[in-house]
Amino acid sequence: MTVLEVKALTTVLHLPFGTVPVVNNVSLDLHAGETLGIVGESGCGKSMLALSLLGLQPNPPAEISSGSAHFENVDLLDMPPARLRRIRGKRIGMIFQDPMAALNPVMKIGDQITEVLRRHLDMSRSAAKRRAVDLLELVRVPDPVRRAGEYPFQLSGGLRQRVMIAIALSCNPAVLIADEPTTALDVTIQRQILELVRDLQADRGMAVLHITHDLGLISEHADRVMVMYAGRIIEQATTVNIIDHPRHPYTAGLVNCAPALGQNRNSHLSEIPGIVPPLNQLPPGCSFEPRCLRRLARCRQVVPELDRHHSRHVTACHNPCSA
């Protein structure tokens, strides 16, 4: 069952030098209970995509210019703000990259959880308080009663991310958007957090949109993977296919760059020679063309479209690697 269906979403940035797309014509389906990974280098628009889905893109400069995002049969992008607020935090939870900055520094942990419960589930103060402690226990925070009375600065990064997860899951959402939830954490904590998310997901049949720049990490946790480059989706397939038979030269580069896949969790993507072109200097054809070893003459002029006829493994490339 599809819970979230995004069609041709484009988000633009209004910058001093002009208006540029930062999320460019992105479509995706998210099914109940699955984990969809979105992989891409820093700055390719992953966060902007995630934020746009909930109308949280920083405006200005960002603005959603076209597309739709249907969730439970209504379009998130075309909905009165008050209605969208009843979906945020309740039906769709979100956790962020930097748990150190994502919690309010002057508010107790417990209060930051109860305010969601009271907002969406209409709970009494005392019921919400008990529930907050239960949630902290659920995300495996030791000594939850004491922690509920503490402030964010008293918690480690890992604990804070657990608190963020507790907040995101407090109302049993159908979808969890996790934007690089472990990038700021060290390797052992990373593993624990991801296992926690996986366990909770299995219990609840929740869909997870997991955004990361770490292909090795996603290969262990996602059912399907979408690869993003300069605002566009350039390849999409099951995780096995992406890892074993990457078709887009960029994906192939990523796979080769993560040598011992699944072991080197800190491997970054930037090991492909060259850099992502700045948003205002995107080439007219394929965005990857300046770095691509398989480029053809027309790559420079014609933007490659996703080849939809390979419905299980789509690629946007004029000269894909053979399977």
Binding site: L51, L54, R85, R88, G89, A101, E115, V116
Partner: peptide, 18 residues
């Protein structure tokens, strides 16, 4: 208003006045 925790608060679906 530009801080991350404000984004979190918005992602929680809180009312703007709050």
């Amino acid at each position: 208003l530009g801080q991350d925790y404000i984004r979190t608060a918005r992602a929680k679906g809180l009312a703007p006045t709050r």
